[in-house]
Design a binder for these strands. Structure first.
Lengths: 167, 167
DNA sequence: TTCCGTTCGTTGCCCATGCAACCAATACCA
DNA sequence: TGGTATTGGTTGCATGGGCAACGAACGGAA
């Protein structure tokens, strides 16, 4: 069927099969999980992903500077800056000047920020659990190891961008 | 040292440890590999990631419609539309009307498009190889299996967005 | 034939984000 | 001390990409 000429011809030489290409598959997986989470962050709590990361980090450490917010260089500093500004505006985060170095400021969750943190965190964790529930504990450990190895290697392959920001 | 009051206090209850949180780690890994690849695509060939995906798909199948370009629902149809438009403008892709259904159009690489495909593909593959080179063949197989399982599960958790587009 | 519902694809609008330039404060060094 | 380089953080600008509304074309039913 279809037109008489060249429909659905196989390509001369398929050099890459996209659905077997690791970076593509990683992107798909990460995108799906991100959107599952972003849905919770956004619809229920009005948080962007960067905002969520800031909140989680402050939930862990109580007091951090904006620079410490992305020690792995994942978020751009402008992203962090804007996320913090938005959170401060909503009264979820407060800043205190660091008297020892007045370039930077200490950040902390306000009580309202902490409350949101305590509301979102369990739901986010639940999504993570549901995701991992298809793997055996042993597989989960293996996965963790593999991700670490790959991440370490990926840092070497993506030098000046995501990493050069730091250092 | 530091200010006398509340610097670096541990948080009351760290509910989530970001660097152990699977979705976060996946995002970091995918982001690093993406940026390693995007660098090649962009700097050397002026291709965005969606454009690259279109080119690879057409390199595999010769003739596809825009709709078939993201069968897994990863790319939004507007993203595909714009990527195809840009590629056509650069003379890398050509459209032919499908006379059997004039809503859609067949897409194919032009010779120039094919040339770019053949130039980019090996480099992209090389990055993928270098990434995987830190894993044993057995680990690579395991990884593949785990990614598949997780992706399948992630599709269930991210319903209306990335998937609802299709169906 | 004429409706109605659905699908493919495009486009206007808007927001998020990366980049780069910039300001302020500090560090280093002569 | 002064001068330069470096770092923390913000902001203007341009771009990429999502969403939703739209137009065009098809399918089915009366």
């Amino acid at each position: 069927m279809a037109s008489g000429s060249a429909a659905r011809k196989p390509a001369p030489e398929p050099l890459v099969v996209l659905e077997d290409f690791l970076p593509y598959r990683l992107n798909v997986l990460a995108g799906l999980t991100s959107s599952a989470l972003a849905q919770i962050y956004a619809e229920r709590f009005g948080l962007s992903i960067p905002a969520w990361r800031v909140i989680v980090t402050l939930g862990q450490y109580e007091c951090r500077t904006a620079r410490d917010m992305a020690p792995d260089g994942v978020m751009h500093k402008s992203t962090v800056s804007r996320a913090v500004a938005a959170l401060e505006k909503r009264g979820l985060v407060k800043r205190r000047p660091n008297l020892d170095d007045r370039r930077e400021e200490w950040l902390a969750l306000t009580p309202q920020g902490r409350a949101i943190y305590e509301a979102v965190a369990p739901e986010a964790l639940a999504v993570g659990e549901r995701l991992l529930s298809v793997l055996t504990p042993r597989e989960q450990e293996t996965l963790s190891t593999l991700i670490d190895k790959l991440t370490q290697q990926a840092r070497l392959l993506a030098p000046q961008d995501a990493e050069g920001d730091e250092a």
